[in-house]
Design a protein around this nucleic acid. Structure first.
Lengths: 123, 123
DNA sequence: TCATTTGTTCAAAACCTATTGAACAAATGA
DNA sequence: TCATTTGTTCAATAGGTTTTGAACAAATGA
């Protein structure tokens, strides 16, 4: 079986609440959470471009991934983020949806996106 | 009216989710949350004596108080902590109970307390 | 092959967090 | 008054977080 461990995503058993809450104790990452939750399943990393610089976003997304909040999938030169709904629901039933609901009421998602949103250029 | 602002407790309007989650992104503070939730309303600060040193506990409790999670009440030389249930419910309906439920499933509250629990000596 | 697109990694800087023991302060009770 | 109890504050230390721009790497497409 050649060691099938995923180096990017921690296994469900090793997720812990304090780390998950730390990953969400930041306005940018709460906004990221809401944006993924509002999407049709996944959001390309570039889709967060309005929230900061490339490298800072990469940092925030890594934090959420290491906490076990999000999954990543690569396609071409792009990377797509989705929520680890099933894993989180198994471990902390109800938590994720409650956090999303609370975050939605807080986060200023008043970013009227331009027509070419999600295709725009980099930093 | 002479300025009736409470210097210890932030007003409801100024509470924010990121700060609340930061206040709970620590195992000790999650355990404190559960202990207060499991109590009959309030817990004397000394009741957390098994979780660390006096001054470290004072630090953790201040963090929770400044985030708007707990209220304090003084009586003699003691201070009692309770949850700010109503304020939190108004701002983030359902959140506190969900966090408590998730924390309860995590926190090792396997501290079989001695007979004189809560009256024991200091650090 | 070579430039482009997308995102990561690195090093540095500025700042924040957790922990400790000692000193301090306030209420209490002898 | 004076010692005790309870908890806070202070200074110091060790380590973690966030942010930036530059360098890098991998896939793609001309």
């Amino acid at each position: 079986m050649e060691d099938m461990r995923d180096p990017l995503h921690p296994p469900v058993e090793s997720l812990d609440l304090a780390t998950i809450l730390a990953a969400l104790s930041d306005p940018t990452r709460l906004a990221i959470l809401v944006r993924i939750a509002d999407s049709a399943g996944e959001v390309r990393c570039g889709g967060f471009g309005d929230m900061g610089t490339k490298s800072n976003l990469s940092y925030h997304l890594a934090k959420m991934r290491e906490a076990g909040l999000v999954n990543t999938r690569n396609e071409g030169t792009s990377r797509y983020m989705s929520l680890r709904r099933d894993d989180l629901e198994r471990l902390f039933p109800g938590l994720l949806d409650q956090l999303i609901a609370s975050a939605r009421s807080t986060v200023k998602s008043d970013v009227t996106l331009p027509d070419d949103a999600g295709v725009g250029a980099s930093n």
